[in-house]
């Protein structure tokens, strides 16, 4: 049986005030998570407002025994963004690559992590990234359990940690256009940081009032919060090493503890789901992707690996 699953906290996709960021990481240092990824993923314009928190947060997390990495942006276009991406390699932390731009400047032989926004769909890609220095790979949230099982098995062979999106609004798309600014009839260059008004993103419903999506600056997320509450045993059996929990504004530390309880087998999937629903923004969960269904679906039931895939593992 593979070793027990541990928890990774992904970079905060939202724009919070520096004081909120400070408290968040101070509290996280005392939580039962093993890895934490810091950094700005969505919009380089936000970073000056909170980047001074990163050093202090890193120190506190390292002191508490967490492994810490620093993430790239999801979409690097501007010259200053390219420079900032290259500079991440010199901080002394592993870089979590969420745009392959980082591999242009990352010295060969320097270990790095691969984030969920890199397209790792198959063995060839995983193999290539590991040969280039990847030591931890968070798979794209879109992958079904069959793909996860094949890649986790290869990850074990290659000696690389394979992570799966465990909790959080799903990062569905990234754009050059800022939808948050557009909703306020502003252009991206004159956004006045309106994304900061919505600490979990701004909801975008259908005209029939169905809950659907959330915009967060140039990023589009799911309105539902993806949760692997019912999938922890299946993912463990498949050889997944870590679950990634993506920050949200309400009771995140409690959520980390609840997942730790679930992984340790001290609470059931239904217990965990009941704990989560009052705290996730918008109050809805989903786990469709891992079951090979549409992403917004909430099954409340474990996924299974297709027999032919299981046979080959």
């Amino acid at each position: 049986m593979p070793v027990a699953i541990d928890l990774t906290v992904g970079p905060n996709p939202f724009f919070w005030e520096a004081a909120a960021v400070r408290t968040f990481y101070q509290d996280l240092a005392a939580s039962p998570v093993s890895q934490v990824v810091l950094g700005e993923v969505v919009c380089s314009k936000r970073l000056p407002f909170w980047q001074d928190e990163i050093a202090q947060a890193t120190d506190a997390l390292l002191l508490a025994g967490k492994a810490v990495a620093i993430s790239t942006l999801a979409l690097v276009t501007l010259k200053r963004e390219r420079k900032a991406t290259a500079a991440l390699a010199e901080i002394g932390l592993p870089v979590e690559v969420n745009d392959l731009t980082a591999l242009h400047s990352l010295p060969k032989g320097q270990a790095f992590w691969v984030g969920p926004l890199i397209n790792v769909y198959n063995e060839g890609t995983l193999r290539w990234l590991v040969s280039r220095g990847a030591t931890r790979v968070c798979l794209p949230p879109e992958l079904p359990l069959d793909s996860i099982a094949v890649l986790a098995r290869l990850g074990r062979e290659l000696g690389v940690a394979v992570e799966v999106w465990g909790h959080g609004r799903l990062p569905l798309a990234i754009s050059g256009r800022c939808y948050h600014a557009r909703l306020h009839d502003r252009a991206k260059d004159n956004c006045q940081f309106v994304c900061g008004l919505d600490p979990d993103g701004r909801e975008v419903d259908t005209v029939d009032s169905q809950k659907f999506l959330v915009v967060n600056g140039v990023q589009t997320l799911s309105q539902s919060t993806a949760s692997m509450a019912y999938q922890t045993e299946a993912l463990h059996e498949a050889g997944v090493t870590s679950l990634r929990l993506s920050p949200q504004s309400d009771n995140f530390i409690g959520i980390c503890s609840a997942y730790a309880e679930r992984i340790a087998g001290r609470i059931t999937a239904a217990d965990l789901a009941a704990l989560l629903i009052p705290h996730v923004p918008g109050g809805r969960l989903s786990d469709g992707f891992v079951r090979g269904d549409f992403g917004a679906h909430w099954s409340g039931a474990p996924a299974t690996v297709t027999e032919s895939i299981r046979h080959d593992l």
């Binding site: 999801a74 926004l117 794209p140 949230p141 879109e142 798309a173 999506l213 589009t220 549409f294 992403g295």
Partner: peptide, 17 residues
Amino acid sequence: VMAEGRCSLSSYATGKS
């Protein structure tokens, strides 16, 4: 309008991406 190859909107609604 999204960065191509990095969009799961379609599969979020339909399961097909």
